[in-house]
Simulated assay, not measured.
Amino acid sequence: MTITTLTSREFNQDTSRAKKAANQGPVFITDRGEPAHVLLSIEEYRRLTGVRESIIDALGLPAGVEDVEFEIPRSRDLPRSPDLS
């Protein structure tokens, strides 16, 4: 794991460098010489926080399955009157 330190100015001028460095390890961003922020990859963030995928993501379709045909058969039953007693 590589730790990278950038000033706020360096971060603002080259965010793509910071994002690439975050894939190798944390990126400390300093403000007036003091660490102020840390940039992490999403995988590292999830590992540290223990965040699991949401129930929506867990129940969703697997990647690459976008075209699912779903047809609901038309009901032949007549509607019933509501029971208001």
Rank of each mutant, 00 (worst) to 15 (best):
residue 62 P to E: 06
residue 42 I to A: 14
residue 71 E to A: 08
residue 29 I to H: 00
residue 8 S to P: 00
residue 38 V to G: 06
residue 13 Q to F: 01
residue 53 E to Q: 06
residue 50 G to W: 05
residue 57 D to H: 05
residue 78 L to F: 04
residue 31 D to A: 00
residue 21 A to D: 10
residue 60 G to W: 12
residue 54 S to N: 02
residue 23 N to T: 15
residue 63 A to V: 10
residue 60 G to H: 15
residue 50 G to F: 03
residue 27 V to N: 03
residue 71 E to L: 12
residue 64 G to S: 06
residue 6 L to I: 04
residue 24 Q to N: 13
residue 54 S to E: 05
residue 31 D to P: 00
residue 31 D to S: 04
residue 85 S to H: 13
residue 68 V to I: 04
residue 43 E to D: 08
residue 64 G to P: 03
residue 83 D to E: 14
residue 38 V to A: 09
residue 78 L to W: 06
residue 59 L to I: 08
residue 76 R to S: 13
residue 73 P to H: 06
residue 14 D to T: 04
residue 41 S to A: 11
residue 80 R to C: 07
residue 15 T to S: 03
residue 79 P to V: 02
residue 58 A to V: 05
residue 74 R to M: 00
residue 36 A to W: 10
residue 62 P to N: 05
residue 69 E to K: 14
residue 50 G to A: 03
residue 49 T to L: 08
residue 71 E to F: 09
residue 16 S to V: 04
residue 26 P to G: 05
residue 59 L to E: 10
residue 7 T to S: 02
residue 22 A to M: 07
residue 48 L to I: 08
residue 20 K to H: 05
residue 17 R to M: 00
residue 17 R to T: 03
residue 60 G to L: 11
residue 83 D to L: 11
residue 21 A to G: 01
residue 42 I to N: 15
residue 27 V to I: 07
residue 39 L to S: 00
residue 41 S to L: 08
residue 40 L to R: 05
residue 60 G to E: 14
residue 14 D to G: 07
residue 85 S to Y: 09
residue 73 P to A: 05
residue 60 G to Y: 13
residue 27 V to L: 00
residue 22 A to G: 03
residue 51 V to T: 15
residue 63 A to G: 06
residue 59 L to Y: 08
residue 73 P to N: 07
residue 49 T to M: 08
residue 59 L to N: 10
residue 18 A to F: 08
residue 50 G to R: 12
residue 30 T to W: 07
residue 22 A to R: 05
residue 55 I to H: 11
residue 69 E to M: 05
residue 5 T to Y: 01
residue 80 R to E: 15
residue 83 D to R: 12
residue 78 L to N: 09
residue 25 G to S: 08
residue 85 S to F: 11
residue 2 T to L: 02
residue 54 S to L: 03
residue 70 F to A: 04
residue 26 P to H: 12
residue 43 E to V: 02
residue 80 R to Q: 13
residue 10 E to M: 02
residue 59 L to R: 12
residue 58 A to R: 12
residue 69 E to F: 09
residue 72 I to W: 15
residue 58 A to T: 02
residue 25 G to T: 09
